[in-house]
């Protein structure tokens, strides 16, 4: 049974995600960001970095599940880019809880997302600090 996100413990992995970016989906992010740089629309096209960040959020794991009436807030993030990702290639994201800590009476979960492409090339590593709380 999949745990609720706030019940995950250090070392727990969330279900991985795989997806392939189409030119249309990439351009959706170009529109959102008003950023039609030729690197995202040419051939081969790079995947827009905000699409990579968006799809590497822990909420995008197929196993992500919030307890009823709760929400999660991203408070802090460290991301490192290693290689461009390309439209049309499969992209894989692995998620793992690497640390849980308490600060100012709030409990933070640190989730590491590792993004690679179908050839195993490391694209992006992202560390997200998340707070879970009750929705108002």
């Amino acid at each position: 049974m999949t745990k609720f996100a706030q019940d995950l413990e250090t070392g727990d992995a969330l279900a991985p995600l795989s997806f392939t970016v189409t030119p249309e989906w990439n351009q959706q992010y170009c529109y959102a960001q008003e950023d039609f740089d030729p690197r995202y629309t040419g051939t081969p096209a790079e995947v827009h970095p905000t699409l990579l960040l968006s799809m590497s959020a822990n909420t995008k794991s197929p196993g992500f599940k919030l307890a009823p009436d709760t929400g999660s807030i991203l408070s802090e993030q460290l991301c490192r880019f290693f290689h461009p990702a390309h439209v049309g290639k499969r992209i894989d994201v692995a998620f793992r809880v690497t640390r849980i800590y308490t600060k100012q009476e709030k409990r933070f979960h640190v989730v590491e997302s590792t993004v690679t492409d179908e050839e195993g090339t490391l694209i992006l590593k992202r560390e997200s600090h998340l707070i879970f709380g009750r929705a108002k």
């Binding site: 993030q77 490192r80 880019f81 290693f82």
Partner: peptide, 10 residues
Amino acid sequence: SRTGSFHSRF
């Protein structure tokens, strides 16, 4: 896209 890193707080 090869060496960029970014630490952000929201």
